[in-house]
């Protein structure tokens, strides 16, 4: 068991390293570099950048070195906890990402809580009463939720909010609080703004989760241990909640790991539409500007989140499922 954990840890470190190489390569894939896109954006706004200036900028940013050297320098900085400068912003990457990362986490967790709180009970109901009227309704609504792209839903919600309730539903803060330092009032303001993005981000996941829970549970309900539990004289509610539901929940534990990065990277467009101050839009901008420090850091963070999440999932799964813990032969 300890050996297992240690092995998983080593594997996790190796994976993170592989992710760092991959993300560095992917960011360098498009032709040109930060300076080319800088020149393009400058000339678009009417001012020209001379050859000399461009070369100086390249040298200053280390972009003239071979790619392996650039990677080595980047990794060297990373290991010291220095994520480099966000080129476009002229500020350290950690500064630029800082608050946004926290807010991203908050929104993602809210979306996940919304998803689970809605999907699990509905999934259980649908499996216990399959092909009932309510099951069909949930299935129908669920598939619609699955089919509507998040950004479209975001637009509709914003329109309805604005046209019928006169509410500005974009953003995460009221204008008064946007730049204010953290305080209880600001947190309360955030809480009030949270439901809409959480729901918009959670809808398609909810629809998926309902389907998964329904089919997991339908499989479990057919197993003999459910009938033996009934034959012991338990009430129907206890039979279902204590046995098949408990078993059907196990696979979800193993998905906790990638939920967070999945929601973060899935939320880019929705965040743009709802003008949420999260890392999603930041990543998009950094990629367009070919700002490799910023983009690289965000991609790497997502990767690390996945690896840590998966590691935690594995531990959790071992904890909830004795078959894995005791290594069933």
């Amino acid at each position: 068991m300890v050996a297992y954990v240690v092995r998983r840890l080593l594997l996790a470190v190796l994976t993170v390293w592989a992710i760092s190489v991959l993300s560095f390569m992917i960011i360098h894939l498009p032709p040109g570099d930060y300076v080319t896109s800088y020149i393009a954006s400058m000339s678009a706004s009417g001012s020209a950048v001379s050859e000399g200036e461009a070369n100086a900028l390249r040298e200053q940013l280390g972009l003239d070195k071979p790619i392996t050297v650039q990677y080595a320098k980047w990794m060297g900085l990373m290991l010291q906890g220095n994520f480099g400068m966000a080129m476009e912003w002229g500020r350290p990457v950690s500064d630029v990402i800082g608050d946004r990362l926290t807010l991203t986490m908050v929104i993602s967790v809210a979306a996940i809580i919304f998803t689970w709180a809605l999907a699990l009970p509905i999934g259980i109901y649908s499996a216990v009463y399959p092909y009932s009227f309510a099951d069909y309704v949930f299935t129908f609504v669920g598939f619609i939720g699955l089919a509507i792209p998040g950004f479209l839903l975001a637009l509709v919600v914003m329109y309805v909010g604005f046209a019928y309730f006169g509410a500005n539903v974009g953003g995460l803060f009221s204008p008064d609080f946007a730049e204010a330092p953290w305080s209880l009032a600001k947190i309360w303001d955030l809480t009030k703004h949270l439901p809409i993005p959480a729901v918009v981000l959670g809808v398609s996941g909810t629809a998926q989760l309902i389907r998964i829970m329904r089919s997991n549970l339908l499989d479990e309900l057919r197993k003999p241990y459910v009938m033996t539990a009934r034959a012991r004289g338990l009430s129907e509610y206890r039979v279902i909640m204590r046995y098949p539901v408990r078993v059907a929940l196990n696979p979800f534990v193993s998905t906790i790991g990638y939920l967070l990065p999945y929601v973060v990277s899935g939320s880019i467009i929705v965040s743009l539409v709802l003008s949420l101050p999260t890392v999603g839009p930041l990543l998009l901008k950094a990629l367009i500007a070919q700002d490799m420090f910023l983009a690289g850091t965000i991609v790497l963070l997502l990767g690390v989140m996945t690896v840590i999440g998966t590691f935690i999932s594995d531990l959790l799964l071992m904890w909830v499922d004795p078959r894995i813990r005791l290594g069933r032969q």
Binding site: T228, A229, V247, N250, R323
Partner: peptide, 13 residues
């Protein structure tokens, strides 16, 4: 009641 399948007649968890 006892069933035919002792393997799956107990909850695995």
């Amino acid at each position: 009641l006892i069933f035919q399948e002792p393997m799956t007649s107990f909850s695995p968890v």
